[in-house]
Simulated assay, not measured.
Amino acid sequence: MREIIFDTETTGFDPQNGDRMVEIGCIEMINRVETGQTFHCYYNPQRPMPKAAEEVHGLSDIFLSDKKLFSEGATELLDFLQDSNLVAHNAQFDFKFLNAELVLCGYKPISQFRMIDTLAIAKSKHPGAKLSLDALCSRYGIDRSHRVKHGALLDAELLTQLYIELTGGRQIGLGLAEDGKTQEAARDMRSASQRTERKQFMAPREHRASDEELAKHKVFVEGIENPLWSEV
């Protein structure tokens, strides 16, 4: 089963008001195991970056000025996504922007039947709790110390770990693999685990009872009154 965990950065909250997607980061997983294949791209939004948005992700007008337009890289992105399910945190937001960009350059929107929302999963598991990506990473012990500002690929990496935890933990990906790519990823994970958890074992000892122990056992058994086995 192939899934793409992804995140976007934008100029604001609503593409209907002219906001645009400026960054997307995607990570490929097969059978809940990361394959190492990623897709990451910045886009020129062809509009000024609001100060409030820049403070969140740090992407300025100057930085984005020489980046490609979404229409120039849409085919490359769609080739990576293929027909896989797409996993995002508060996925309605990311789908809204991704589909708006696709429609603007003449592509069909991606069906929401392919959408998996980790926010909805977290709500069902932790009702009433804080459910931001930061809060859930803290709950599950996922290191986010390197996350100074939002970034699409960085947040997708964190979300990949969170998605695994929300859906059962790492053991899910260690079953029978469907193809060589998954087998290799699973072997790498097991190998890393073995390197960090190598145990020391005691030398085997003799387990056969001694003659003295056998004699004591015989006396004990013979001293039992009305044993059940005497009735057989």
Score class of each variant (00 low, 15 high):
93 F>W: 01
86 L>W: 11
172 I>M: 14
111 S>R: 10
68 K>G: 05
165 E>L: 02
169 G>Q: 04
111 S>W: 13
23 E>N: 12
173 G>R: 06
11 T>V: 05
165 E>F: 01
9 E>Y: 00
167 T>G: 06
147 R>Q: 11
123 K>C: 01
157 E>S: 05
57 H>S: 05
142 I>M: 05
230 S>A: 14
190 R>W: 02
126 H>W: 12
84 S>L: 01
56 V>Y: 07
164 I>L: 05
229 W>S: 01
196 T>K: 15
230 S>R: 14
68 K>Y: 02
13 F>M: 14
184 E>T: 10
58 G>S: 02
93 F>Y: 15
57 H>N: 12
127 P>C: 02
154 L>D: 06
28 E>T: 06
29 M>S: 05
193 S>G: 14
79 D>W: 00
37 Q>V: 10
25 G>V: 09
205 R>G: 12
56 V>F: 05
120 A>M: 12
196 T>Q: 13
10 T>K: 02
10 T>N: 05
78 L>V: 08
14 D>S: 12
171 Q>F: 14
129 A>D: 15
128 G>R: 01
94 D>P: 00
93 F>S: 04
176 L>H: 11
199 K>I: 12
213 E>S: 12
189 M>L: 15
229 W>L: 00
223 G>H: 08
110 I>C: 07
186 A>H: 08
143 D>Q: 06
10 T>P: 11
50 P>S: 10
15 P>N: 07
37 Q>K: 15
13 F>C: 08
85 N>I: 03
85 N>S: 13
160 T>Q: 03
66 D>L: 02
71 S>A: 13
210 S>R: 06
175 G>A: 07
72 E>L: 09
215 A>S: 15
207 H>L: 14
38 T>M: 13
81 L>G: 05
44 N>W: 06
39 F>C: 09
107 Y>P: 02
73 G>F: 11
45 P>A: 07
112 Q>T: 15
5 I>F: 09
119 L>D: 08
13 F>P: 03
124 S>T: 08
48 P>E: 12
204 P>S: 03
89 H>T: 04
12 G>W: 03
68 K>H: 00
208 R>M: 13
102 L>G: 10
48 P>C: 11
140 Y>H: 15
124 S>M: 13
204 P>I: 00
24 I>A: 05
218 K>I: 02
47 R>V: 02
101 E>C: 09
201 F>P: 02
64 L>E: 00
150 H>L: 01
115 M>Y: 10
133 L>D: 00
185 A>E: 11
137 C>T: 06
25 G>T: 10
33 V>G: 10
116 I>T: 10
106 G>Q: 12
46 Q>D: 15
36 G>V: 04
176 L>Y: 06
134 D>S: 12
54 E>T: 14
231 E>C: 04
168 G>Y: 07
157 E>Y: 03
112 Q>D: 15
198 R>V: 04
210 S>A: 09
136 L>W: 01
176 L>K: 15
80 F>S: 05
128 G>L: 08
1 M>R: 09
179 D>P: 06
30 I>H: 07
130 K>I: 00
63 F>A: 11
229 W>P: 02
161 Q>M: 08
55 E>G: 14
113 F>D: 15
7 D>N: 11
149 K>M: 13
79 D>P: 08
144 R>S: 15
194 Q>T: 05
47 R>W: 07
205 R>Q: 11
185 A>K: 04
50 P>I: 03
134 D>Y: 08
